[in-house]
Amino acid sequence: MNASNPQDQVQELRRQLKSLLDAATANERKLDRFDALERRLIAVSSMEELVNLLLVDCRDDFGLDAAELWLLDLDEELRRALPALPMVKPPRLLDGHGPLKDLFGATRSTRLIGPGADEGLLALAFAPESGIKSAALLPLIRQGLLIGSLHFGSRDPERYDSSSGTKFLDRLAAIAAIAIESMLNRERLRRAGMTDGLTGVHNRRYFDHRSLIEFSQAVRHRYPLACLFLDIDHFKAINDRHGHPTGDEVLRQVGGLIQRSLRTGDLAARYGGEEFVVLLPRTDEAGAREVAERIRQMVQDAPFVTPEGGTVSATLSVGLAMLPVEATSFGDLLAAADRAVYEAKRRGRNCTVVDESPAA
């Protein structure tokens, strides 16, 4: 600027003032967007709403090219809960702390990756095909523990500059972490009311409620409904010979094998003691027999690990029944499957029997 020319000085001052006003306006808009997002985070009522908000709405509202959410899931509680939820984009579930350590090291603070920064972090945080050139990596911390991370990415290499401040992002990360912890606690309470604490499958109370819904749907829409009763053979002998902690481990692991054998929409529950029950909507007899035999074979082949590190073996007797076309009560289907499992035990156990009595 030419100091001897007052008009040039005025023009330069006006230019600087306009630049400051534009920056202030942009910051005010950014603050408004962050404030609105924080209010929505605080008000979410479900885990799927929270995830969709962080990964879809945030991306759209802030003009991002990518958003990723990583959540630590050491006990696989999220892995069990999230697959059935209606999410446009699911989070990445981590079974260990390694990926988070790779991103944040020991600092556990927001990282801005811009031009000249470590591009290896971009490759870790986003899929290579996303074309992300700059990013903000937000650690999610609750009660001093790193529970996950939230990543915002842009194809514009200038979008995030490592020299910029992170005040807004730090606040967003803190509120997102609180919302996630709140939803996790709510999900734990919800599942506690309908889940068997030992095996992780649904409990008898939930089964009694859900089975009536499945029954009415099958009758109304005239689609097949199969019911399996699965009973662990000689379970008392396992408890007597190896102790109740080993028996509990067998129950827990059998429950896991059953769960992994089913489709979304199928229902498995611990019915009582060493007995499980499975409902297979829209499944004919051949398909139900295939499922029953797959579960029975998996249990037969599995080495069940004991608390002491040893192994024991176990087998299942399986009773299968199909809902009759003229059925008027779900209890008839349940009774038929119960008859079939007793027949399987009478035939020597470790087999699948289909109920063929007139009632079925």
Score class of each variant (00 low, 15 high):
E12P: 03
L20E: 14
D32Y: 10
D35T: 14
L41S: 00
A43W: 10
N52S: 09
L64D: 01
L64M: 12
L69G: 00
L72R: 11
D73I: 08
L74C: 08
A84E: 13
L85S: 04
M87P: 03
M87D: 05
H97W: 10
S109Y: 04
G114M: 10
E119V: 11
E119Q: 14
A127S: 13
S130G: 03
S134W: 05
A135S: 14
A136R: 06
I141S: 08
R142E: 12
Q143H: 13
L145F: 13
L145K: 15
G153T: 01
D156W: 14
P157R: 10
P157V: 11
S162R: 13
A174Q: 14
I178R: 04
L184T: 08
G200N: 07
R204P: 03
Y206A: 07
Y206W: 13
R210G: 00
F215M: 05
Q217N: 12
A218G: 05
R222E: 14
L230Y: 00
I232Q: 04
D233N: 08
H242F: 15
H244P: 06
T246R: 01
G247Y: 02
V250L: 06
L251Y: 00
Q253T: 09
G256P: 05
L257W: 02
D284V: 09
I295D: 02
D301S: 13
D301W: 07
T306M: 10
V312F: 05
T315R: 07
S317Y: 01
S317I: 01
L334H: 11
A336R: 00
A340T: 01
R347A: 12
C351N: 06
